[in-house]
Amino acid sequence: MAAGVRLIQKVSSTRTFARIAPYVVPAMDRAVHRLTRGKVLLSARMLPGVILTVRGAKSGQPRTTPLACMPEHGSTGGGSTSWILIGSNFGRPGHPAWTANLLAHADEAVINWKGHDIAVRARLLEGAERAEVWQAALTFWPPYATYQARVEREIRLFRLERRDTS
């Protein structure tokens, strides 16, 4: 593993990062994503990322959130067929708002993945399926273990799968 990645993982596991990152990282991602017309997501230089758009659980208004993701590849090879979203909230108390939005409007989400809008269906992972994906997430980004250790809630995991829009 490159020294730079280890350093980023160490920094992202700190409480200071957890306090600052939720305000700085999404704002930078939104600005760069908008300026590059969806071609660049700054945080994706560390982890793959998507821009999630889903109606607010309470407001009903479209909510757009840049998020790290864990792409899953299908047996056909090539591009991602599904994506895992981890509601870590940087190890802060409380589930992030976007998780409530997905629970309320699971069949209406859209992600922007590498500049392409893709209609997706979200599913909250539970039980053995969640446990298996959680282990994969810890291998993918070890700081998730630190985030989980800081909070009493179980971090929500969602699988997003392409949905037919025809």
Rank of each mutant, 00 (worst) to 15 (best):
R123L: 08
T139K: 14
I51A: 09
L47S: 05
I86Y: 04
A106C: 05
V50K: 02
L52M: 02
V133Q: 12
P96K: 07
K58M: 09
W141T: 03
K114E: 11
A57V: 09
L138V: 13
T65R: 04
V54Y: 01
G56H: 02
T65D: 07
G115E: 04
R130M: 00
H105E: 08
P142V: 07
A109K: 04
R92K: 10
D107H: 05
Q135M: 08
D107Y: 01
W83C: 02
L124A: 15
H95M: 10
S80L: 10
S88K: 04
R121T: 15
P96Q: 06
S80T: 13
T76S: 12
M46H: 13
S82W: 08
A57E: 11
L47Q: 15
A122M: 02
A104I: 03
C69F: 00
M46P: 04
G94A: 03
A104G: 09
P71D: 03
T64L: 10
L138Y: 05
G60S: 13
R55F: 11
R92D: 06
T146S: 13
A137S: 10
A122F: 00
G91V: 08
Y144P: 07
W98D: 10
V133Y: 09
E129Q: 14
L85Y: 00
S80H: 11
H73Q: 14
R55C: 08
G56W: 04
H105G: 04
A104H: 05
G94D: 04
G127S: 00
H73I: 15
N101S: 12
R123K: 11
T53I: 03
T139S: 12
R63D: 09
K58D: 10
I111Q: 05
W141L: 00
H116S: 13
K58A: 14
P71Q: 11
A119E: 15
M46A: 14
A128P: 13
F90Y: 11
T99C: 07
T139W: 14
L52T: 05
R55A: 14
I118T: 11
Y144M: 06
M46G: 12
G74L: 03
L125F: 02
L47V: 13
H95A: 15
P143F: 09
R45L: 10
L124C: 06
G60W: 06
